[in-house]
């Protein structure tokens, strides 16, 4: 795949110069701080609302902090990454920046793979940054024994990104609009979530990887209980990327 490494390197340089890496890092650091903060604030907030009443308030725990972390990552983080990756191929096609490079021997497949790698890199780094911050605050403020597997819980979500970003890249290749990737991702996410209403599908459904993090964290589910979903996720990602390559081959640069 001639040009893969060059395009990936170029993507990194451009993202840095366009302030995208810095902004992305800052946003996810913020998410990382917010999770333990919300966990700590919730009882205090409830107390101020319920003044005069005597209610027993649960002390905040590490689980509440991680719960907020996964809420942030799945409800916001995934969609932030969708915005990040959504314009990546469509913008090149709109502006015609690939013409000269492809005429010089750059393979179209290499473009798809480099864009995908770049998106995946950003996802992993963003997720880990937020994770590190939440981990540190949680360990300091809620040093309980309720969350024995924080690392294990993160893996399914990381893995879901493999499929998620492949879908976004496919959407970005399909249309000239920079939002098609985002919309396709949102549509697929909604579809998979609805599908999860059937209990039988749960083990195979990629979207379960974004739902079961807390169960893994507290140890009520094992890592391999979702094994079929990991496989479906990978297969889906491969299919999306293959389709994206096929589409880009046919598209006018």
């Amino acid at each position: 795949m001639r040009g893969y490494a060059l395009i990936l390197q170029n993507e990194l340089i451009l993202a840095w110069r366009r302030y995208r890496l810095v902004v992305l890092a800052l946003v996810f650091l913020l998410f990382g701080i917010e999770a333990p903060l919300v966990a700590k604030l919730t009882p205090a907030l409830l107390k101020s609302i319920g003044q005069g009443m005597t209610i027993t308030l649960p002390e905040p725990t590490s689980v509440m902090s991680w719960q907020q972390y996964y809420k942030n990552m799945t409800q916001i983080g995934l969609f932030v990454l969708a915005i990040v990756a959504s314009g990546t191929v469509s913008r090149e096609l709109n502006e015609g920046t690939l013409v000269i490079l492809v005429a010089k021997g750059l393979r179209r497949n290499a473009v798809i793979m480099a864009k995908y790698t770049m998106a995946l890199l950003q996802w992993v780094v963003a997720l880990l940054l937020a994770f590190g911050v939440t981990y540190a605050y949680t360990a300091y403020y809620f040093p309980d024994e309720l969350s024995p597997h924080p690392w294990l819980a993160l893996w399914p979500l990381l893995w879901f990104g493999v499929l998620w970003l492949a879908i976004i890249i496919l959407g970005s290749t399909l249309s000239k609009s920079g939002f098609t990737g985002f919309l396709l991702g949102a549509g697929v996410y909604l579809g998979l979530t609805l599908l999860n209403m059937f209990k039988a599908v749960h083990r195979f459904n990629p979207v379960s990887l974004t739902n079961d993090n807390l169960a893994l964290l507290t140890g009520t589910k094992t890592f391999w209980s979702l094994a079929p979903a990991y496989a479906v996720t990978l297969a889906g990602a491969v299919a999306c990327l293959a389709l994206a390559m096929l589409v880009l081959k046919k598209r006018r640069l």
Binding site: R2, L6, N10, L14, R18, T97
Partner: peptide, 20 residues
């Protein structure tokens, strides 16, 4: 001709040259 606006002329040519 469309280029990556955030590169310098030398950087763009270097990208092209490394491709070939």
């Amino acid at each position: 001709p469309a280029y990556y606006g955030d590169l310098s002329a030398r950087e763009y040519l270097t990208l092209c040259g490394r491709l070939t």
